[in-house]
Simulated scan of single mutants.
Amino acid sequence: MPVTGESKVIETIINRRSVREFTDKLISKEGINTILNAGRWAPSGLNNQPWRFAVIRDPETIQKLSECTNYSKTVAGAPLLITAFLDSENSYNRTKDIQAIGASIQNMLLACCELGLGAVWLGEILNQHEKVNSILGCPSKLELMAVLAIGDPAPGKRTSTRKALSELVFEEKYGEKWEE
């Protein structure tokens, strides 16, 4: 197995970018199911699958949700939102379950990239979680973890950088730098 970034999965991970502007093109039901299936196949402790998702395509609901965040233009401009929730009734360890939901969200973002779609993981909207749950009619057992804005990416170049591994990794003892 290649370890130098030659595999399709590694290539997708490295090339994925957050997309905040979309065209008006709608996402097919098949595409939505592909994204959701990628999310549900994420790992979770004891395979408890603590995530629940809401699919939002109604323009009026999208507009209401856009009023719950400082990133209203991104939300309002997306033809599809997928919300990720922690189902507190199916939770066995909060930290592990939140990590599992993060893995689920990443799987969905990678699926979007593979499908040629743009997506961004929105967290600031969590400040209005009660309002979001009210708009969506969610039961209190569901705790909002994120909103994904998804759509056909508007034209534009998207770039990103990352810190060097030597700034992020140490070997066995803290302070000993990792040689790249």
Rank of each mutant, 00 (worst) to 15 (best):
52 R>L: 08
49 Q>L: 07
75 V>D: 01
24 D>T: 15
107 N>P: 02
52 R>Y: 14
108 M>F: 03
117 L>M: 10
75 V>M: 07
66 S>C: 09
117 L>T: 04
51 W>R: 00
29 K>N: 15
95 T>I: 09
75 V>C: 03
37 N>E: 15
83 T>R: 08
44 S>P: 08
26 L>G: 01
70 N>H: 15
25 K>F: 04
33 N>W: 03
89 E>I: 02
38 A>V: 09
29 K>H: 14
114 E>P: 02
112 C>E: 10
29 K>F: 13
105 I>F: 04
108 M>A: 02
54 A>S: 13
107 N>V: 01
79 P>C: 01
41 W>P: 00
80 L>K: 04
60 E>W: 04
50 P>L: 09
32 I>A: 05
91 S>I: 06
41 W>K: 06
36 L>N: 09
116 G>M: 05
29 K>G: 04
33 N>Q: 14
31 G>R: 06
68 C>D: 03
63 Q>P: 00
63 Q>M: 08
67 E>W: 11
31 G>E: 15
91 S>E: 13
53 F>M: 01
27 I>H: 01
56 I>L: 09
40 R>Q: 10
113 C>K: 15
111 A>V: 05
86 L>Q: 05
72 S>W: 12
111 A>K: 08
59 P>E: 06
84 A>N: 03
65 L>T: 06
67 E>L: 14
102 G>I: 02
60 E>P: 00
71 Y>S: 12
65 L>Y: 11
89 E>K: 07
64 K>W: 05
36 L>D: 10
95 T>E: 11
46 L>P: 01
25 K>R: 13
102 G>E: 06
86 L>D: 05
85 F>W: 15
57 R>I: 15
61 T>G: 06
83 T>F: 13
72 S>E: 10
111 A>Q: 02
35 I>P: 00
111 A>I: 01
28 S>Q: 08
72 S>M: 10
117 L>A: 00
68 C>R: 05
23 T>L: 10
104 S>I: 02
92 Y>D: 11
37 N>Y: 09
37 N>A: 12
45 G>C: 13
103 A>P: 03
65 L>M: 14
34 T>F: 07
70 N>E: 10
59 P>R: 00
51 W>P: 04
27 I>M: 04
91 S>L: 05
62 I>N: 13
42 A>L: 09
67 E>Y: 12
90 N>T: 06
108 M>D: 03
21 E>M: 08
97 D>H: 09
34 T>P: 00
92 Y>A: 12
44 S>N: 07
80 L>F: 00
87 D>K: 07
88 S>Q: 12
78 A>G: 07
97 D>V: 06
60 E>K: 12
116 G>D: 08
86 L>V: 06
30 E>D: 14
95 T>N: 09
65 L>R: 05
32 I>D: 04
101 I>K: 05
108 M>R: 00
40 R>L: 13
102 G>R: 06
90 N>V: 05
116 G>Y: 11
99 Q>V: 09
28 S>H: 11
110 L>T: 04
74 T>H: 07
34 T>A: 12
49 Q>V: 11
117 L>D: 01
